[in-house]
Design a binder for these strands. Structure first.
Lengths: 217, 217
DNA sequence: CCTTATTTTGAACGATTGTTCAATCTAAAG
DNA sequence: CTTTAGATTGAACAATCGTTCAAAATAAGG
């Protein structure tokens, strides 16, 4: 059903598409799906409206591509971190959460604005029930991969508990990314310490869920 | 500047306004601010378009009212729970998080659809940076109230740590409410146990942040 | 170089948006 | 009951929306 190309896309065309996706990423993140118009996106990308439709294939398709582009990249990054952890020898719960979060969070904080926009974009995707299939497609595979590693560490734990802890951890991570301006304003500079704090929170919370009963006191 | 009323609103008028706010609450929650049109809201409420504008005072004002209506009610509910806890004598970290979460979460699960819609609505408000002032107005007072109680329990902890833990806890709670259909599908029926699990997660995570160093092992 | 698939432009389409307004109905106040 | 502020209707407003399309510019393939 899909019509195949007869020519390779030019370098300029690829650049244009990337520029359109970047603009869409920023505006979808700031204003949500219907809040960002194709005309605003086109203006930010420096192209004509019709061209956005040509490269994006409709607004919904454009949104889909905008999310999956970074989601795929992020999934690969996380699996790389996981692989490095497993080869290091000592796989701990904290190590797993570290592999899942630190690289991404650091990118969103110190890296370009792209990952910061993506964080807000994910928040919109998670908030709107209409994007549930998209969220499942983008996030579930990697999440399930980490859940299995967690279950290998805690053989007595139920899968439901690990999945729940994973959901809560992702939520806390997104809150860290999207309200970071607030935490940052309260104690500036200590970026690395705040990442540790996030992982502390999730590790302790996950542990409490995985091994029931009073663990501390 | 505000023109004062010269007559009391009729009972029917109050009913209509409530019906409009309910419809707005549902559609704003499902599709976001620009995703829900005033005409859809009017149709769901069974009134004319102009009437929505008359009672809401513009779309932005309507959104504002929709959020604050339940936010005020929820803030009162949480402060009541907090007062009951303080009068019970033993104020613990778990008790504080329980007072903050259980009543609301139970309402959203077992109560009418209104609180379920409100949960999704808060997710939209939190995801969109344009509603930051609204979020601060609605959520900060109550949040700060609980943060102070937490700091009274942990005098050595820094305020930033308590505030961060509060943000993460709220994020986990919203994730529980808005992805509950997923958790529910995995292990149906155990509603109360899942609330305990949520509070377990947040309590352990908060404790890990408030008192640094290896608390368990 | 020549052909033509692809990219890009510019303008238009109908549909929907939030808002406004005069007319009509309702019911609170005197 | 009479008065009239307020609630409700129905229709219209200009603006913006996503989409479509023919024509021009670009560049890959032979």
């Amino acid at each position: 059903m899909e019509k195949q190309r007869k020519r390779a896309p030019s370098a300029r065309s690829l650049q244009t598409k990337a520029r359109i996706l970047d603009a869409a990423e920023q505006l979808f993140a700031e204003r949500g799906f219907e809040g960002a118009s194709l005309r605003d996106i086109a203006a930010l990308a420096g192209v004509q409206v019709g061209l956005v439709h040509h490269h994006g294939g409709g607004k919904e398709e454009l949104f889909h591509q905008t999310v999956t582009r970074r989601a795929d990249e992020l999934a690969a990054l996380r699996l790389t971190e996981l692989e490095a952890l497993k080869q290091s020898g000592d796989v701990t719960l904290r190590g797993l959460l570290d592999a899942f979060m630190r690289a991404y969070v650091t990118l969103a904080r110190n890296g370009g604005a792209h990952w910061q926009h993506y964080g807000r974009l994910v928040a919109h995707v998670s908030a709107d029930p209409r994007w549930r299939p998209l969220a499942a497609e983008c996030f579930d595979p990697t999440a399930n991969r980490f859940i299995e590693e967690i279950l290998a560490l805690y053989p007595a734990a139920e899968r439901q508990a690990a999945a729940t802890g994973q959901v809560y951890s992702v939520a806390a991570m997104l809150a860290f990314l999207n309200t970071g301006w607030r935490i940052e304003a309260l104690s500036p500079g200590a970026a690395e310490a705040q990442v540790d704090q996030l992982i502390d929170f999730c590790t302790a919370g996950m542990e409490a869920i995985l091994s029931p009963g009073p663990t501390c006191t």
